[in-house]
Structure formats: structure tokens, C-alpha cells
Write a protein that binds this DNA or RNA. Structure first.
Lengths: 241, 241
DNA sequence: CAGTGGTCTAGACCACTAG
DNA sequence: TAGTGGTCTAGACCACTGA
């Protein structure tokens, strides 16, 4: 009962959408009509419509009206973190090496750097019960004076490694998720045979200007790993707060 | 230029956050102070703060102030659709069978139904160049008069199958993504041997009241499948529109 | 208590769309 | 031209936090 008027309007319109009374593509009542219907000022109605729009229910076209959105069926929220996404989580991390190398063509492509530019290579193994469960390879463009402190790299996630000073807000990330038959190197490191499938998660980090600042792949032993995702368009309990 | 004042305020605060001038946990200027600073009314300032909050940059605590959020490092947007996520996309679908069956314990668990309730089983194979690339199994609680029309099921996605009449807005979905060694049935259907890894994507559909209304798994041949995800917290070009 | 954010009003002017 | 949404104002009252 204590809930504000604008939320009542939000609920009213949501229920009309959920029940199918108004369908995707339909125009909803105009703002002025809603003002009359609920006997409120236009700003209050607009507050409601802002909420509905930010939750993806409607969109507005200036000069025409507000319209019901197509539900975005294929959109999910995914949580991923190479350090914590493992079942039972990682107990220890083993830093295989940190090296400054000449980039391969693949690395040049992914980091979009000149051929003569050097690259920092970081290789780690994640352990659970003293058994290797993931193998992690990362490439970062090298610049003079870069602080490559083993201790810092040991337990850091990729964005943390790259963004020593930058605000993490500015970093854009892309994941590519694949299954893979382990090659000999991976079989060796993860102590598995060729029939054990591996989840390969490729991470690309980009700065504000969409310039690559890091690229890497983490190979997870299949039986120690899964991802979960949930659809958007969840009525988040009308989270007051 | 032509851009409204409230967007200038948004940009100003965003740049202070991105540059690190104000950091996660910091309180930003109070609304009244921002009114003075930009010489605008409070509603205009609040419009700006609403935008920043909806994009995840800030949150507000009544009686205290507005605070900079921790960037949600681990959150990604994932797009998935069992019919279109395959490389080169599916050219054809083969409906193996549609049956009404007695549920196994696993199905009872996932659909949260009584033991004596019957379940509709749908099995499909997705083909590309006449080769099987995915095997799809779905379970839906059976109710009398349910229209199980083979033609409809042939090319439909899971939510479409379940939500014949309901609005798709009301459906909540969960995905579980795993790699898997193919068992003999899958080897047979996808025409692969045990060394070929398989991506298993489990889908759970829930209605408005979080009651399960569908459960299923799609097994993708590894070399024909990958997923992509991008970080949230993207400055979506300040999409005016 | 003074200060904060949350809600709401009753106006205003603008640019856009469509008949 | 009438109707739509987009922006903005200058107030108001409220509940809440902290000194």
C-alpha cells in the first residue's frame, strides 16, 4: 500500500503486457490519457514509462507514442570469472612462467599490434586438491617500465592484471566459449587424455576506444566446470532498492 | 550542442568515474549541489542520476546520498538460441519423435511434478549439409487437450513450444552450459566417436510463479558451436534512442 | 536538527508525426 | 493543425540518516 503511484502504473501496464492484453508492437495509451486515467501529473506517468522502458518492456517513438517491445528471447545474463567459476573453487594457483616474447601471427591479430612489438606471456595452472583443473594463457602488449610482479599476477583475474591503474569501468570484455579436444600440451598440463573434453574460454579485453589491451584463453577440465546464465526480462521482485 | 543538459551531467559524472577521480564506494555530490553547479532544477539532476543508476554506475541510499558502484566485473550479456547459435546455422530439422512418457526421477526433479504425471518428450536433430550437428531433447508436463502438432514443433524454439498462448514476457529461463564426453546414444545420433567433445546446454523454463514448465538439453557437436558474450558496463555510444 | 534522496504537481516550450 | 513524446522549471511534502 505504501508503494508510490508510479509503481502502480508500472504494474498495471506490465500486467496488461504479461497477460497479452497488449502485445508487442502495439501502441500503449498516450501519456496524457494515462494522466487522466490515473489522475496524476504527466511527470509521474513519464516516471512509470521510464521504468518500463529501462526494463525493456516498452520503447518510445517521439511524435508517435509508446510501444510494446518484442521480448528479447535470446538474451541472457552470464556470470563468469576464471578464478571463481570452477566447482568447489580454486585452492591454489601455480604460475608457470611470465615471459616477454615475440608475438605469433595469431597474437598480432588479436592484440592488433605491430609485428615488432613485444608481448608479455603469462601462463598459470589452477589447482583443486593438488590436481590441475584449468590452464590459463594470457597475452598483454609490453611497454617499458611495466610492472610484472609475480606475486601480483599469481591470484589476479585478467582485468585486474591489465588494469593496474585504469578504472575497471573503462574496460570492455568479450568472451568466446567453445568445447575443445585437448591437444598434447593441454593433455600434459591438465593430466588428461584425449577423450576428456575441455571448455575453452577466450577473453578479449578492450579499452575505452575499443583498442585491444589483452587476449587470452583459459582451458577448463570439463568435469570441473559449467556456466550458468539466466534470462533477462525478470521482474526483479520490483526491487525497491 | 543539441544534446540535453541532463546528458551533459551524465557525461560529466561518467568521465569522473572512468578517470578514477571518483572511485567505487565514494559518495558523489548531493543533488542540490549538482543543481547549483550546473544551474538546473533538481528534476533535471535527478534525471541524470536515474540514467547513471540504470546503467549501473551509481546507486543511491535514501537519506545519505548517491554512491559509485563497484563495477560488476563478472557480468556478461550472452545471446543464445538453440536454432540460430550454430555456425552457418541450421538448414534442416529432423523430428525424431514426440511421445507421452512416464517421467524418470531426473525429469520429476527438474519439472517438480508428481510421479504419476505424464510428460511430453520431444526429440529433434538439427542438420547442416545433411549432417547432424545437434541433438535436442525436451520435456514438458502433459495436460489434457494439449496441442502436440508435429509441424509446429519442427522449427520452434523451446519457449515457443511451451508458450503457445502465454506471453513470452512471462517466461523466465535458465541455462546451464557444460562440456561432455558423448555417450553411446549421442555418438550414434551425431555420428561421432567418443573423442569428439560435445557442448551440452540445459534449458529450464519457469513461469511467472517460478514453477517449471519445461526442461531440456541440447547437445551440440563441438566443432559446430561456440557462444559469445560481452561485458555489461558498455557505454552504448550514449544511444540517443 | 539540517541535509539527504523519493515522490509529485502544474505548468511551460520544443521537435516531431500524421492527417 | 492537433496530438505525441522530450526537456525543464520551481516549487512542495515526505521519510530517512547522522550529528
Amino acid at each position: 500500500m505504501g508503494s508510490p503511484i508510479y509503481l502502480k502504473i508500472v504494474e498495471d501496464i506490465k500486467s496488461k503486457i504479461n497477460s497479452g492484453e497488449i502485445k508487442p508492437g502495439d501502441m500503449i495509451k498516450s501519456e496524457n490519457m494515462l494522466c487522466d486515467e490515473f489522475d496524476v501529473s504527466r511527470m509521474t506517468v513519464r516516471k512509470s514509462l521510464t521504468v518500463l522502458a529501462s526494463e525493456g518492456y516498452i520503447y518510445s517513438v517521439p511524435g508517435k507514442g509508446n510501444f510494446v517491445n518484442e521480448p528479447n528471447q535470446d538474451k541472457y545474463i552470464l556470470y563468469f570469472n576464471e578464478m571463481t567459476s570452477l566447482e568447489g573453487s580454486v585452492e591454489d594457483t601455480q604460475l608457470l612462467d611470465v615471459n616477454i616474447i615475440k608475438p605469433t601471427m595469431e597474437i598480432i591479430f588479436h592484440l592488433q599490434i605491430p609485428e615488432n612489438k613485444r608481448v608479455v606471456l603469462i601462463r598459470r595452472v589452477f589447482l583443486s586438491d593438488d590436481n590441475p583443473v584449468a590452464y590459463d594463457v594470457k597475452y598483454i602488449p609490453y611497454y617499458r617500465g611495466m610492472p610484472i610482479v609475480e606475486k601480483e599476477i599469481h591470484y589476479a583475474t585478467f582485468p585486474e592484471i591489465v588494469a593496474k591503474k585504469k578504472s575497471l569501468f573503462a574496460i570492455h570484455k568479450e568472451l568466446k566459449i567453445k568445447v575443445q579436444k585437448p591437444d598434447e600440451e593441454i593433455q600434459d598440463i591438465l593430466n588428461i587424455d584425449v577423450t576428456e573434453p575441455v571448455m575453452a574460454i577466450e577473453q578479449r579485453l578492450l579499452d575505452e576506444g575499443n583498442r585491444p589491451i589483452g587476449w587470452g584463453v583459459t582451458f577448463f577440465k570439463g568435469d570441473f566446470f559449467h556456466l550458468q546464465a539466466v534470462s533477462t526480462f525478470v521482474d526483479q521482485g520490483n526491487s525497491i532498492y
